[in-house]
């Protein structure tokens, strides 16, 4: 497995986090080191993994509750237009 610039670019694209040219080398090195250090984990042999259950009867009842903080939530919107949240348009429209 090669942890290289191509992979790093791919991860940056997926996570919407970019790196400056000046820090790229440093990140590449440290990530490479960490991945190598952690790759020991792949040596483990498979077995089923147990997780805990949440019972049907204890699930949340279907009752609607109006939030008291809607105005404050809207106050946190960076840009608001007629009660809608305003967001820049998508470039690569899918």
């Amino acid at each position: 497995m090669k942890f290289d610039n191509e992979l790093l670019n791919y991860l940056c694209g997926l996570s919407k986090v970019s790196l400056k040219e000046s820090e790229r080398e440093e990140f590449l090195l440290s990530l490479k080191e960490l991945v190598e250090e952690f790759s020991i984990i792949s040596n483990l042999e498979d077995e089923p993994v147990e997780i805990e259950n949440s019972e049907y009867l204890t699930l949340r009842e279907d009752i609607s509750i109006n939030c008291n903080n809607i105005d404050k939530i809207k106050d946190n919107f960076p840009f608001i237009k007629d009660d809608f949240l305003e967001v820049p348009k998508i470039l690569n429209e899918e």
């Binding site: 609607s64 509750i65 939030c67 809607i70 809207k74």
Partner: peptide, 16 residues
Amino acid sequence: SCPTNYGASPNSNICE
């Protein structure tokens, strides 16, 4: 637990 009624005014059936 937000309400789901159709036709509510924009951003009125919201919570954190």
